[in-house]
Design a protein around this nucleic acid. Structure first.
Lengths: 184, 184, 184, 184
DNA sequence: AATGAATGAGCGTTCATTCAT
DNA sequence: AATGAATGAACGCTCATTCAT
């Protein structure tokens, strides 16, 4: 019965989204499973129908967030015709999702350390996506892949962390200018 | 009775250092006040003689860590004779303390969000120190202060976060090369 | 429609048997209704079609187990021609079913305390069956019915409880010898 | 400071006694740590100051119960001058403590199966005490030690289990008469 | 009749904080 | 000032039970 399946998936999605929202707002440890259940408008027990544990839910959220970053990278690569366009598009996309995704990215980074294996899986996808972009535009980029990887990732992470200290929009310009200087 | 005063300060110091060590090792949520008391070789109740709450202790530790960053900046400024030397020295100093300080820096960042005011106090000191350096070497630095602030801070934070993904030492070189490109 | 009736009874039976098996294996508290449903190959909700609650299911299982004891007694009585033969046969039959029945018997004992009434119903059947045997062989048995009842039941219960502390088979011999001494 | 120690031990004792009482009344799984705390008039957390877990508390209670059985045996041995006196005294003592101890004995028996090691430790003490008595009065006892052990233990356990089915006092007489027949 | 997704009461346990000593 | 025994709110999680399909 496909209807049921959809409903099931809807609930799973609702829980992930609620968790994502709350983790972004308050960090991981400060969000209880009850909080997530309330936000998702499901019973406390329902979370455990879909996820074995809070930790597993966390991984599902992390996976979803990392995927969105990877998507940002891949789509930028698809739509761009040169390195400059690619960087520009990627920055635009990343900043569009910055508010929730960004915070989570680094929240997870810290937390997932304990279960390195999962984290490394997510990270590898992200790294692979960046690698593809690098390979395509290698000739235009005046940097090794390691540098390319560090510079872009560093700026994206920091953008979130320091978002509050800059006027809105200003930080994006700084990142764009910085990457242009670093990578051409 | 000055002796007592000294002793008092010693105990306070011991608690902060114990907390700093454990927070760096295991993150904030995974360290209980009992752990800190044990590490500091004081009674559990003693912590509350010196600090109103775990949160207040956290702030004291954070303050201590931020101060050390500020010290890194100021000393580099004092010892250097031009922008390049300054950046070089600052990177060296920051990386020397990276292992514990770095981890704490970003651990606090998330945690202190709830009490923005404290965080902003720490941050202002750091920003002021960087500002002084910027003013001194302004002419040699091809960037606005905002850029200067974002680039350096971004790289320092990310260095810790991504430390595990690079060979030891490699990340410092990348940072140095990056800052040279960005700031001259 | 008798076919449906049969099917219905089959499902009821399957649930009881599944519960019996699992209770014997793991005790009552360590078996969830989900476990029983899985073992019986029915849906979780189906259990509640046939039984009002886990407690009621428990009683149904208990009833089934007690019946089997009663059956052991009655069959032994039917097949025997004197007290000695009767005791011998009863012990044989009881030990044949000891592994699952025995464990359940005393598992239930504790649990059913809360609903004394049900327990007393089961027990009365068992007592009645023993009474019949006693009446038939009264003259050969050198004990009151109370003693007869206590001695036999005591040994049967304890046999299970202490099974692990004796070599297999040894306990049966001890019971036989004991009963002979006590009852002739 | 011995005063503190005494107080500490008092609280530990209070918790064990509360647990003992409730376990005897309602079995192990039906008693929550909150129930025990309430009964012992301590905070819920206090239990965990003295016992690592509910399981560990359970073992402490079991140990206390088994010890009291062992004490019953040993004291009877000390005070008696022949097998008959010994059996008589032991039965008296065991029945004196029957109400709580007896129920617990078999409640634990069931539960401790999972952590056999602990259980075997307790049981060995009990068995050893009985062995000593057996050795002293061997010549008067017309049974092997295995029989002696099974008969006495069986009757003690069953006495509790079946206590409700007999008039008060009656069961003790049956046990005495039974043991006399079995062991002389 | 049969199902299993959904639920929330209640579990065992932790830990920041208090307070009598 | 210094302590650690004592506490209970709050946690992650389980499971008997309900109910829409």
């Amino acid at each position: 019965m496909p209807g049921v399946q959809v409903k099931k998936e809807e609930k799973r999605r609702a829980i992930i989204e609620a968790a994502e929202k709350l983790f972004a707002e308050r960090g991981i440890e400060d969000v209880s499973t009850s909080d997530i259940a309330r936000e998702a408008r499901v019973g406390k027990g329902t979370i455990y129908v879909y996820f074995e544990s809070k930790e597993k839910l966390l991984k599902a959220v992390a996976s979803s967030v990392y995927s969105s970053f990877v998507k940002d990278v891949r789509e930028s690569l698809k739509d761009s015709r040169n390195a400059e366009e690619f960087l520009d598009m990627m920055v635009e996309r990343v900043f569009r999702n910055m508010k929730t995704r960004g915070k989570l990215l680094y929240t997870f980074h810290r937390h997932l350390k304990s279960s390195k294996k999962d984290y490394e899986g997510f990270q590898k996808d992200y790294r692979t996506a960046l690698k593809e972009a690098y390979e395509r535009y290698k000739e235009e980029i005046g940097a090794t892949f390691e540098e390319f990887y560090f510079f872009t990732t560093s700026f994206f992470m920091s953008s979130y962390i320091m978002a509050g200290e800059f006027e809105p929009g200003r930080i994006k310009e700084i990142v764009k200018a910085g990457l242009k200087k670093l990578l051409s």
